[in-house]
């Protein structure tokens, strides 16, 4: 929006497995406007300076979750981080930490997708209802029990922030555990027992070391650390209840 022809140096991590033996930084001089996002800076590079730079993006409005990246070492969405905040200085952009790099800023997300499917992230109804019976009733208060955890955009910033996931990729990780809690906490759902087979394990909530950096970097205030905590509580209660009632009994 300004007219003083500001520029910023963007140091971007490059890695093209067909030609680069290892990742390296490439610096681009990018002219920018005050309202430009880091993503717009990358688009400028792609369109006008170097068409070989690859990165994921789509919606530009922090809802599709494509453009997670490390910006000066912090996991952020490229489309909701603004170049003006890094002026006048350099800005370093890298692929999200804790994931293998496919190319440049593009990471391999197979692990995340497999884990997502494993937790049964869909409603397992307490009582099956036919369409003709209309909607399940759910009060605004009941909705509020899980609403926050349903707003995860799968951007995986919390995985890049999670030291446990960095050490042990077997850990299910913050975003997906939050999603598990989203369904467990839904008044229409009766699938908690099925999901908590995994949730109780070290791959599940007990793998979390309660660093809570995940909640800090979350762009949508999902607060995965809180979701995991609530499940640790639930998991501990389940553990003790096993001694007082047989498995599968209803209480």
């Amino acid at each position: 929006m300004s007219d003083d022809n500001k520029t910023i140096e963007m140091e971007v991590l490059r890695y093209r497995p067909e030609q680069d033996r290892e990742p390296f930084f490439q610096t681009y001089e990018v002219p920018f406007e005050d309202d430009w996002s880091v993503l717009q800076g990358l688009q400028y590079i792609k369109d006008d300076l170097d068409s070989s730079l690859s990165f994921r993006w789509s919606c530009r409005m922090a809802i599709c979750g494509s453009c997670g990246m490390m910006i000066d070492g912090v996991p952020k969405l490229g489309c909701r981080t603004f170049l003006r905040n890094y002026h006048s200085g350099k800005l370093r952009v890298e692929a999200l930490e804790h994931f293998p790099i496919e190319r440049d800023l593009v990471i391999v997300v197979d692990d995340f997708m497999e884990k997502l499917a494993r937790i049964k992230p869909y409603l397992i109804p307490k009582q099956v209802r036919k369409l003709e019976q209309g909607e399940y009733l759910q009060t605004p208060g009941q909705l509020e029990q899980y609403r926050q955890f349903s707003t995860c955009i799968n951007c995986m910033l919390c995985y890049a922030a999670c030291p446990q996931y960095g050490l042990n990729s077997g850990f299910t990780g913050p975003g997906i555990l939050a999603l598990m809690h989203r369904y467990n906490a839904d008044s229409r759902d009766g699938g908690r027992d099925q999901r908590m087979e995994l949730g109780h394990s070290d791959e599940g909530v007990w793998g979390c070391a309660a660093v809570a950096y995940c909640s800090e970097v979350c762009p949508k205030e999902v607060d995965p650390a809180n979701a995991i905590n609530q499940n640790k509580m639930g998991s501990a209660i389940d553990y003790f209840l096993r001694f007082v009632r047989p498995r599968g009994a209803t209480g």
């Binding site: 399940y136 759910q138 009060t139 605004p140 899980y146």
Partner: peptide, 15 residues
């Protein structure tokens, strides 16, 4: 809704 979509609700629990 039956598949879990969190539609906003009225105080009585209806859509």
């Amino acid at each position: 809704e039956h598949w879990g979509c969190p539609w906003s609700r009225k105080p009585d629990g209806h859509i």
